[in-house]
Amino acid sequence: MTVRIDPEENEIRALKGVTDWHGKRVLEIGCGDGRLTRRLVRLGAVIHASDTDAGLIAKARKNLPKQFAKNIHYSVGQAERIDQPNESLDVVVFAWAL
């Protein structure tokens, strides 16, 4: 079984045009299995990625490329209770999550 979502990478192209991601501290809410997270980290961001589904977070951790292990931090969590300090992030992405 193979599924490809946004093979043309229109999504990451649009996100890339919004800001310079290099060195940015980013929270991705609704990361799922990490599909978009793995694309964002290639732009140089440090990403905290969360999802309410523990199974998807486990899958995301399993699929985490070693070279990006220091720059992606996955956790199970809800958008209504973000486990981050006040005024600590440069970007918050609601990824198909609102």
Partner: peptide, 24 residues
């Protein structure tokens, strides 16, 4: 949803970006 957006506001630095990406 509004609660989630308020949480995002809390953790964002001043001048930080909130990106809402979802299907049309």
């Amino acid at each position: 949803m509004v609660h989630a957006l308020h949480e995002a506001h809390r953790v964002l630095k001043p001048n930080g970006l909130l990106l809402d990406l979802r299907p049309a």
